[in-house]
Nucleic acid binder design. Structure first.
Length: 833
RNA sequence: GCGGGUGUGGCGGAAAUGGCAGACGCGCAGGACUUAGGAUCCUGUGGGCGACCGCCCUUGUGGGUUCAAAUCCCACCGCCCGCACCA
């Protein structure tokens, strides 16, 4: 028999699919659409296993839906702006554009080699002018809507990448890309007012029923909505008020000090005239120099200094000292906190270090804690004590009453604050979309008019690393004329965060050659939102939050009619080897290209889909790969054997249900049952739950079953109808997983059309149903016998059969039956005394 | 610390709603075919006992609910991930 040669088959079909434009898609209002999207890659030059897994999963989803009659959009492109290209330019002298475009073609070749069903006509690369023109257009949209603004702020700076980072990109005090601890820098930067959308980004998480709970929780925590109270503390001896934010208004009588952040604008004024000016200034500059990561960690020292000034507790009238300390962050709340050491861990730590008093104002039912017996801060709920007119109130009620009181007196108000900060989008790098703004001495900051877009990146620049965008030293780029007055002006030299490019690419795919707008609203209305988005969990906050924000802005601008871009989200697990993520330094990398060259794309895809469910981590196994290869070989030989079995006239069953007993020969009924039960199981596993591993195991069982049938029935007595149906069904169901071998075998089974254009097989419930099923009989919870019965046996019949069983009888001897539970189709459970 | 996840044979992993634990695959053992096989095909494979007839134990640990628990409840332990001075 002809051997299975994966590589030959794969290149053959890939070429034919390409020529036939097989996976091209266009809107068709008459058909249900399905937008299947995988996160597009950064073109680093080579595909890694994580990509393969991502795209293999996506391809099953896309192909499955196509076979189920959906009009499927399945595009691919490249997130092509970014630092590695620029670093390559500095290191090796290659131009970032050249480096990137070469990598794109390399990766595209890898993707094609995998046989993923992309509509390549819709390919986008974010670094091309006809794409980034629209990224710039969207920046202008943000600007017009008052959502883009420039401000000087202390921002995260990565000394390795030589650029600033958004908060989301410096999550643990380290650069998301290179892991270098970030430092603080005061810079004039462009921001997007994502905080204006904080509530909607939070509330609309409820709409995302197709998202993993985990991702929603991460976003919820990141947005960090917190309800509380702003309260003014007048400064003793000055006409100034320190405004603090607190979520624990019920503890206000426990305030024994007030703390300002080192960057607090009032600090200098407060300190002035106290004789402590120098000490405070020295302290502040020392803190400013320390790494941001140190300051932002809980284990840090909590250093502070008395400012020499006092503030007045607006409720108790008590004078409390004003301190400055590193543990208070200017970025959160008001940059000032009221110190309640008895009921806050950090305040207690700080108070103990600095000899400040501690006063308990909340106690539980048993009157704890007390000032004397306080070991740890008591942060739980309780009753207010030592709190004047509020004594005796339960803490939640106390919060409300204090808030009402403060608002009535005009010394504060209820306030909601967020952890989320505005999105810093400036980058001091070359390889990004230029921010389309111009600085004119006369007109100030002026946006580039839409009709002048794109602001093109100049090709000739000096990349030698500096702390400023290489564009600064490119006079042809910088020098321009003011769009308002026509006088000489300077261009903005920072480029945009690449996350901006990736926040809207799924819109562009719907009409990638649109020239009047970033996307054709008509096409977007048909295709969007994305029905299934698939990618890594690492983007849970960054990319996915930004994309949601963009979508909401586009909605507000009337460009789209939905508020969430991704209806269903699947976060695939990592690919591990020897228990750890594949990495160069660890030396545990498996190269997809080598794998494909050795076993073929179908084997590679099959193994990845079989080894673990998509959401879980996948432990790589070279042996497992061999197993998948063996399975495909088994399928190959089986189907070819059936196709070549000309002993009897072959009839195509075409999934028609059995009409009469005459349709089915010896053993044919059992084979048909296997076929239809497998169709049922595989369909269910793919559709609802993406359990590709169990779907594949069902196909393996089916193959085993067909082999058994062949072995049990000699050549002449086989049921050709049932066999043809089995082979057809098997190949059809294999098509989404291993598209090349399925296509080849489909043609070998004498079908003229592509397997990928066939409808997904439908099972017949009657045929799938077993004639006999096993019902277990338990005595006192232990299985004592198994009954082979008709699936429709009634409870009474089952019970009678169970009690008649000799095996069961042995365990019933001398005992009285107390109870019998019968579940038809499942079991009979007998309980004795 | 807070939030989320996870724990099942030698390994990857199965067990829709509580109802035969260990599907499928890998590995291993034995056999068949072979000059040979690391190809292919059969058989066996959680642990223990035992006249292949079976019995007992077993889903991180300890309790509980139930005729029945990997699955539900309570407490604990391990590992993984995210956030982490957020007032």
């Amino acid at each position: 028999m002809e051997r299975y040669n994966a590589r030959d088959i794969e290149t053959k079909w890939q070429n034919l699919w390409k020529e036939g434009g097989f996976y091209r898609s266009s809107p068709d209002p008459a058909r249900r659409k399905f937008y299947c999207l995988e996160m597009f890659p950064y073109p680093s030059g080579n595909l890694h296993m994580g990509h393969v897994r991502n795209y293999a999963i996506g391809d099953v989803v896309a192909r499955f839906h196509r076979m189920n009659g959906y009009n499927v959009l399945h595009p691919m492109g490249f997130d092509a702006f970014g630092l590695p290209a620029e670093n390559a330019a500095i290191k090796r002298g290659v131009h970032p554009a050249e480096w990137t475009m070469r990598n794109i073609s390399l990766m595209k070749a890898d993707l094609e080699m995998l046989g993923i069903s992309y509509d390549w006509d819709r390919e986008v690369a974010t670094c091309l002018p006809d794409y980034y023109k629209w990224t710039q257009w969207l920046f202008l949209l943000m600007y017009k809507r008052g959502l883009a603004y420039k401000k000087k702020a202390a921002v995260n700076w990565c000394p390795e990448c030589n650029t600033v980072l958004a908060d989301e990109q410096a999550e643990t005090g380290k650069c998301w890309r290179c892991g270098t601890p970030v430092t603080r820098k005061d810079l004039d930067q462009w921001f997007f007012r994502i905080t204006d959308y904080a509530d909607r980004l939070l509330d609309d998480l409820r709409l995302l029923t197709g998202w993993p709970e985990r991702v929603k929780t991460m976003q919820e925590n990141w947005i960090g909505r917190s309800e509380g109270l702003l309260i003014e503390f007048p400064v003793d001896g000055l006409d100034e008020r320190i405004v603090v934010f607190t979520t624990r208004a019920d503890t206000i009588f426990g305030v024994t000090f007030v703390v300002l952040a080192p960057e607090h604008p009032l600090l200098e004024k407060v300190t002035a005239g106290t004789g402590r000016e120098t000490a405070v200034r020295d302290f502040v500059s020392r803190i400013a120099r320390s790494p941001a990561a140190d300051r932002a960690s809980e284990g840090a020292s909590r250093e502070g200094l008395f400012t020499g000034r006092y503030a007045v507790n607006p409720l108790s009238g008590e004078r409390v000292p004003v301190w400055v300390a590193d543990y208070v962050l200017m970025e959160y709340g008001t940059g000032a906190v009221m110190g309640v050491p008895a009921h806050d861990d950090r305040d207690l730590d700080f108070a103990r270090k600095n000899g400040l008093p501690v006063r308990v104002v909340i106690q539980d039912e048993s009157g704890n804690p007390t000032d004397e017996g306080l070991a740890d801060a008591y942060v739980g709920p309780g009753t207010m004590v030592n709190s004047g007119m509020f004594d005796g109130l339960e803490s939640e009620e106390g919060k409300r009453r204090v808030a009402a009181y403060v608002e009535e007196k005009g010394i504060g108000r209820r306030h909601v604050t967020y952890r989320l900060r505005d999105w810093l989008i400036s980058r001091q790098r070359y390889w990004g979309a230029p921010i389309p703004m111009v600085y004119c001495d006369k007109c100030g900051v002026v946006p580039v008019p839409e009709e002048h877009l794109p602001v093109t990146l100049p090709k000739d620049v000096d990349f030698v690393g500096a702390e400023m965008s290489p564009l600064v030293s490119c006079p042809e780029f910088v020098n321009t004329t003011c769009p308002c007055c026509g006088e000489p002006a300077r261009r903005e030299t920072d480029t945009m965060d690449t996350f901006m490019c990736s926040s809207w690419y799924y819109f562009r795919y719907t009409s990638p050659r649109e020239t009047r707008l970033p996307f054709d609203p008509e096409a977007a209305r048909y295709w969007l939102p994305v029905d299934q988005y698939i990618g890594g969990i690492e983007h849970a906050v960054m990319h996915l939050l930004y994309s949601r924000f963009f979508t909401k802005v586009l909605y507000d601008a009337g460009l789209v009619d939905f508020v969430e871009p991704f209806t269903n989200l699947l976060t695939q697990g990592m690919v591990l080897k020897d228990g750890a993520a594949m990495s160069k330094s660890r030396g545990n990398i498996v190269e997809p290209r080598e794998l494909i060259e050795r076993y073929g794309a179908d084997t590679a895809r099959l193994f990845i889909l079989f080894a673990a469910p998509p959401e879980k981590e996948l432990e790589w196994s070279d042996r497992g790969v061999e197993g998948s290869s063996r399975f495909l070989n088994r399928v190959w030989r089986l189907v070819l054997g059936i196709a070549g079995d000309t002993a009897v006239d072959r009839q195509r069953a075409q999934m028609k249900p059995v009409r009469s007993a005459a349709d089915v020969g010896a053993g044919g009924a059992a084979l048909r049952r296997l076929t239809h039960a497998t169709i049922k199981k595989v369909t269910h596993d793919i559709r609802g739950r993406f359990n590709f591993n169990t779907a594949l195991s069902a196909l393996m069982e089916m193959v085993n079953g067909i082999y058994r049938y062949m072995q049990e029935c000699p050549r002449g007595s086989r049921d050709q109808v049932a066999l043809a149906e089995a082979a057809d069904s098997l190949v059809l169901m294999l098509a989404p997983f291993a598209p090349h071998i399925a296509e080849e075998l489909w043609h070998r089974l004498d079908h003229a059309e592509s397997v990928h254009l066939q409808p997904w097989p439908v099972h017949d419930e009657e045929v799938a149903k077993s004639q006999r099923i096993t019902v277990v009989v338990q005595v006192n919870g232990r299985v004592r016998d198994r009954l082979e019965v008709d699936p429709d046996s009634s409870a009474e019949e089952l019970q009678r059969a169970a009690l008649e069983s000799r095996r069961v009888g042995r365990f019933l001897e001398g005992r009285r039956i107390k109870k019998v539970v019968t579940v038809p189709g499942k079991l009979v459970s007998i309980v004795t005394e």
